[in-house]
Structures are given as C-alpha cells and as structure tokens.
C-alpha cells in the first residue's frame, strides 16, 4: 500500500505517494530525478548519499522516504545560490578537493554539517567530522584543505 508523503527539497514542495520500503535516496534520485546525491555503498558506510534532513546531516540510503514525510531537505543541488556557488563548493574547486567527484556531493553536505557545529575546526576535527565519508581518489589531503579554506572564508559570513 502506497503512503502519501509531502517533502520540501531545496525550498520546493513535492507531494508523492511512495511504497513504505522506498529509501529516501531513491526517492530523491529516481522519483524526483535529483541525481546530485549519489549511492556509493548502499550500506551506510561511504556517505556519498548524505543530505541535510531538517538541517542536520543524514545518510539517505539508511532512511525511508516515509520517515522524511513533512521534512525539509537540502541536497547538493540546493546549495548554490543565484549569485553562484556556495562557499564550500567554491573551496572544493579552488583547493582541488575532488578528482572523480563521486564522493563530492556527500563530502560537501557533511562539510556543511561540520561547519555548522564548529565554524573553526582544526585539521584533526575536520578529519573526524568527515569520518563517515569515503573518498577513493584524493587521499583526503585536499578535502581537508578545502574545508579549512571554506571555514576561513565563511567566518563571520552567512552559511
């Protein structure tokens, strides 16, 4: 039996009927075609499916779409404004925080969470804050640099 849900994603309202077993990540990618959010491991390990669910990071492969009924969600598509990239995106670009880019949407959403909780993290805090996100390309050095750069640029400014 399908269940009606109503979710706000990146400021836009979506009303759909879903099967209870539909994962939030498949709702976002397959039902709504917002394919910026990735599925890496599908087992809650890699973080490539990370979105902000009511303002805090969540692995959308480990959440049912029905659990998100009534929630407000931000995906990578919702970060950039009309005036260009979000500062974290800008910093990942400038500091070469990505190679193939598959982990990047999740890394950026997790970085958003990290900087929300700690606006001036040390390198070690950045590494711990991104513990749930795996990257098979960069070796993480440039990801840490990118987050540090974003923290510096965002200080005092709006997120």
């Amino acid at each position: 039996m399908k269940i009606p849900i109503s979710v706000q994603i990146n400021g836009r309202q979506y009303d759909r009927e879903v099967e209870p077993r539909l994962l939030l990540v498949h709702f976002i990618r397959d039902t709504l075609r917002l394919t910026g959010t990735k599925v890496g491991c599908d087992t809650s390990q890699c973080g490539s499916c990370t979105v902000l669910l009511d303002g805090v990071s969540a692995k959308s492969c480990t959440c049912l779409a029905v659990q998100a009924d009534g929630a407000s969600i931000t995906t990578i598509e919702g970060l950039a404004g009309t005036d260009g990239l979000h500062q974290i995106q800008e910093s990942f670009w400038n500091k070469h925080g990505l190679q193939c880019g598959f982990c990047t949407p999740g890394m950026i959403m997790a970085s958003q969470e990290l900087l929300r909780c700690n606006s001036d993290p040390s390198d070690e805090e950045i590494r711990h804050g991104l513990e749930g996100n795996l990257c098979r390309c960069t070796g993480y050095q440039n990801i840490v640099r990118a987050v540090r750069d974003a923290a510096g640029s965002m200080e005092g400014g709006s997120q």
Partner: peptide
C-alpha cells in the same frame, strides 16, 4: 558512535 550522520539519526 559511528560518524556524525549516524549520530544524528
């Protein structure tokens, strides 16, 4: 426990 996203849920 786990990582920040796991701790949030």
């Amino acid at each position: 426990i786990g990582d920040p996203a796991v701790r949030n849920r």
